[in-house]
Amino acid sequence: MINIRDLKFSYPGGFALDIPEISLSEGKIYLLTGPNGSGKTTLLEILALLLPAAYREFLYRGGPLPDSERDLLAIRRKMTLMEQNPYLFRTTVGENLAYGLSIRRIGKQEIGERVDFILKLLGLQDFRGRKVGELSGGEKQKVALARALLLRPEVLLLDEPTANVDRASVEFIEEKIKEYHRERKGIVIWATHNREQAYRVGDEMLCLLEGKLVPGTIDNLYFGEVRQDGGETYFFFKPELKASVPARKPGPARLIIQPEEIIVSLSPLASSARNSFSGRVVRIEELGRGVSISVDIGVPMQAFITRASYTELGLKLGGRVYLTFKATAVSVV
């Protein structure tokens, strides 16, 4: 539904976003992860057509973005961005919710019905006449979410929607967004720092690092050096720990391994995979669709396996395991 090629954006201060290609398909929830300052908010604002970026091609539903401001507004009205620290207009909850609809010239009766519906959906029935100044942080976040969902956007962009809210509200907000997405389809792009959340709600992961999209997640991101050794190329996590990687120019580099690409076993595997490490399990976390295993192989490394594999392997904290992955399963950037 959204295809962009050669996306470039830079702030006067120097930070730059440089994405050769990004394609987002209808019906999916994309989890946008990355460290602070990696460009998540900037990318969301560009996707929401709020920041003007340079690009070779920006297709929305197969068509290029229009030149005229009026036509562009029509597309912008199919998208909504909920900011990390959303601003609620200094009026009542009801008027905040109605704003997006009233500027679309929707009739008062329909606005009233839709506002009532969304308030009920988010358990905010008694909030309609409340002034926003009287709301708690969690309530404000819910109202901002209600305001975004009410517009039924094709593209819903969420910038850390559960940051700064209590645990109960996090689960509630996640559930409502998933519920909305199941019913509405469209695209949800959800920026988060929370890896548990990423596994719980996301269909696909987009990871940003210093303004560039990198494959995988930030779970297994290592800073080290690429060197040639005996005709092979290795990434050195530290002097005594290395992994075989595809041929690349020597020098400082970052290695990323997707947790899903790592095979966990109780004994060494006889396979063509070039990398096999042994270590002890230091953490086990159940995350939505599977289980995340953290193993100390000299550096912490996360693997993501299914619940069935986890049960079958009978993994325990402190137990010895082997992590195996192909040289081609890693990305060196």
Partner: peptide, 14 residues
């Protein structure tokens, strides 16, 4: 607040 303008735009304001 800078967010007033951004919020209005993201909600579809011309």
């Amino acid at each position: 607040d800078r967010r007033v303008s951004l919020t209005a735009r993201t909600l579809g304001a011309s």
